[in-house]
Amino acid sequence: MRHVILERWSRGESCVHRRDPRAKIVALITFLAVVATAHRALAWLAPGLLLLLLAGLVLAKLPLTGALVRAALVVPFTGVFALICWFAGEPALGLRLLAKSYLSALAVIWVVATTPLPALLNGFEMTGVPRFLLVVCQFLYRYLFVISEEAQHMSKAAAARGTAARNWTAPGPSFRAAAGALGVLFARSYARAGDIHRAMLARGFDGRFLQLHSENFRPADTAFALVASLAPVAVRLTVERVVG
């Protein structure tokens, strides 16, 4: 699955990876807010913020092309709107939307690719997100692998019986067959999920995921949060003063 690559990146080693997830969340929210509220001089601001993100990616020792390509996953949706704006005689608005959503997506990648998801969710818990929601997120993420494995087994089995494997994802089989396949997929995943949960209970799981890494907010984290949040604000103020 596609997201495995982010998982692998998030296990890397760099000064950004080492920072407390809360510090990164703060920095991310500031960056997103700076992008979202920007109206003036976007033609200069966007490249400035992009450079900032690139610096962040380099600092985190992440593969640049890979990250840039991944962020482009937002383009299909944004592109449609850019086109609509183009047809409505507002090409500039379209480009602005495109730039803003691309920058936001890249910023999210920068954080997710430097923080393992459990740690990130733990960070959210400490910022006040309901724990029940986060536990559901954890299980959802874990069972996503289970379900995709089961789906692969099923499509292999179907292929072995002579049904083309591509039928699971491309048009071809009847509507009913697809619904039936989903039903079977559910039943199998349900059984697997039960096994996993039982194994967790056997090892004393009581509804909360604990972290092996100690989560102390160190001075370095404070410094990081300050610098990383002030940088986009500074870029924007500078650009707006110079250009606007």
Binding site: E7, R11, P116, P118, R142, R192, D195, I196, R198, A199, M200
Partner: peptide, 8 residues
């Protein structure tokens, strides 16, 4: 497979 579910 059912028992090992943490990332590392």
């Amino acid at each position: 497979e059912s028992q090992l579910f943490m990332p590392t």
